[in-house]
């Protein structure tokens, strides 16, 4: 699935990384606990989270993730968006809750990694 499709499914706003929206992702992970993200070594394309700090971007970077989705319409500060941008990571903001956002993506074929 292309990141721009993820954007459309989640009615999301692109906060940075507009130039990478054509990239393909095949799985996603939803978590506010970064150690849960780090518990899976397999390739995961997207991190959905409600957490807003630099460690979210660091975790995505360590895991080669291409996109971070901020759920429930929260607004990350400029420093966080700039940091994601510097790591060539797309940052999206969706109005949906974590559960709904994950459900919408799963329903359209974007699976998790087990």
């Amino acid at each position: 699935m292309q990141i721009k499709t993820v954007r459309d499914i989640l009615d999301a706003e692109v906060l940075c990384g507009e130039e990478y929206l054509d990239q393909e992702v095949s799985s996603a992970c939803g978590a506010d606990l970064m150690s849960d993200v780090l518990a899976f070594v397999k390739d995961q394309g997207i991190l959905l989270t409600g957490l807003l700090n630099l460690q979210v971007v660091r975790t995505a970077e360590m895991m080669d993730m291409k996109c971070i989705v901020i759920v429930r319409g929260k607004t990350p500060d400029e420093k966080l968006v700039d940091f994601a941008d510097s790591r060539s990571i797309v940052m999206l903001r969706t109005p949906y809750s974590m559960y709904t956002a994950c459900g919408r993506l799963y329903n359209d074929g974007l699976v998790g990694v087990e």
């Binding site: 978590a31 506010d32 606990l33 970064m34 150690s35 849960d36 780090l38 518990a39 989270t49 957490l51 700090n53 460690q55 979210v56 975790t59």
Partner: peptide
């Protein structure tokens, strides 16, 4: 608060 400290490290 940073998303760590849950005994998974």
């Amino acid at each position: 608060d940073l998303g760590f400290g849950a005994g998974m490290g």
